[in-house]
């Protein structure tokens, strides 16, 4: 089997496209997703940078970013993308790639008892669906 940069890149793009159902090369970097993202100021990579890095095959950089865990799946970017890309699906496909290799982002033991008592169930159900493998 030939191992080359080109091949790795293609595999990563293919994986993202398969899991997200989105066409990565449809993105022309207009930046509307980042402009409208309500969480963007806390992110280490802007949403459009995530897409660009996927196009270029930077798997490690993307999967190790904080951005993929900060995306709250609010779908603002999806509703504004002029190229019809569901960016939230791309973000979920990236989380899935980390989670499916055992990289849980959240463990129940890390949660404070106060929070467990106070928070609504839907926060836990949705939080663990996004932040842990199930």
């Amino acid at each position: 089997m030939e191992i080359s940069e080109k091949r790795t890149r293609e595999e990563f793009v293919e994986k993202v496209e398969e899991l997200s159902g989105q066409s990565i090369f449809s993105c022309n970097q207009c930046g509307r997703c980042s402009a409208g993202c309500p969480i963007v100021t806390a992110m280490d990579l802007l949403p459009n940078q995530v897409i660009r890095l996927i196009q270029l095959g930077y798997e490690g950089k993307v999967l190790n970013s904080r951005t993929i865990w900060l995306c709250a799946s609010c779908l603002t970017c999806d509703s504004r993308c002029p190229r019809g890309i569901d960016i939230s699906r791309i973000m979920e496909s990236l989380r899935a790639q980390v989670l499916r290799k055992g990289g849980d982002f959240l463990e129940i033991s890390k949660l404070s008892l106060d929070f467990l008592i106070l928070a609504p169930q839907q926060a836990f159900v949705s939080g663990f669906r996004k932040y842990s493998a199930y």
Partner: peptide, 25 residues
């Protein structure tokens, strides 16, 4: 009015501060 409150980010200690910022805004 249609901007996200941070949703489930409040669950993780690593992301929950974002929710306070969203609440303030």
């Amino acid at each position: 009015k249609t901007e996200c409150c941070g949703s489930y980010l409040s669950v993780s200690p690593e992301t929950s501060e974002v929710v306070a910022k969203r609440t303030y805004s």
